[in-house]
Amino acid sequence: MLDIKNVTKLFNPGTPDEKAALVDIRLSLKEGDFVTVIGSNGAGKSTLMNIISGVMKPDIGEVSIDGTKVSSSSEYQRSRWIGRVFQDPMAGTAPHMTIEENLAIAYRRGRRRGLSWGVNAAKRKLFSEQLERLGIGLENRLKAKVGLLSGGERQALSLLMATFTQPQILLLDEHTAALDPARAELITKLTERVVREMKLTTLMVTHNMEQAIRLGNRLIMMDKGRIILDIPEERKEHLTVDQLLGEFEQISGHKLADDRIVLG
């Protein structure tokens, strides 16, 4: 479904600040794979997400989705295949527009936007049904501005918007990191359910070790722009947080350093 071949990305090339954000990354996801990604600060997790979604172009290497090479297409062109939820709850929604208007935008993902009404009775009914599935009462607030929602509500809405049209690939970039533990747990549960029900091919960056082990069918670990460990489903089932940290230290030669890291 997703193929990343020999991708390298440099920041500030040719300057004293040159940094290899990604080095010869090779990663292949099968349809329905749910891969969790962990790694220390600056390991290249977010850069990897940006390369896949087209926010950044790789210096060398190739990205293909469902067999189609997409390296040269821009973010808005790729968005037909890719749904994305950002870490910042502000990033995934338009704050001065209403909930139904935000959903209407998500509803047109990858299709031409013309002069038909963004929201009509039929769409409103659909939006309301979809919101109901979130179980947080947003279906009664269709005309509320999104800027009035709490961080958790916004992130739940972002998740719904990102998966609304069943994209081929779902990218989750620490999408629970900015929330308090209770809300983070709610969003995690929602994520699990949506991914399972829609069988989405998913790549999820997380700083929560326990979550990285518990969710998904594969775990990859990044350090200094490289994938240093790739744990398949069979091994992941019996993995503990301590083992995971130990393994990281052994391979990378230093402790897993992340100021936000949560062990479990």
Partner: peptide, 10 residues
Amino acid sequence: DNDRMIRSFG
């Protein structure tokens, strides 16, 4: 309102 968001929706 949020150009990053609308780009991610194509």
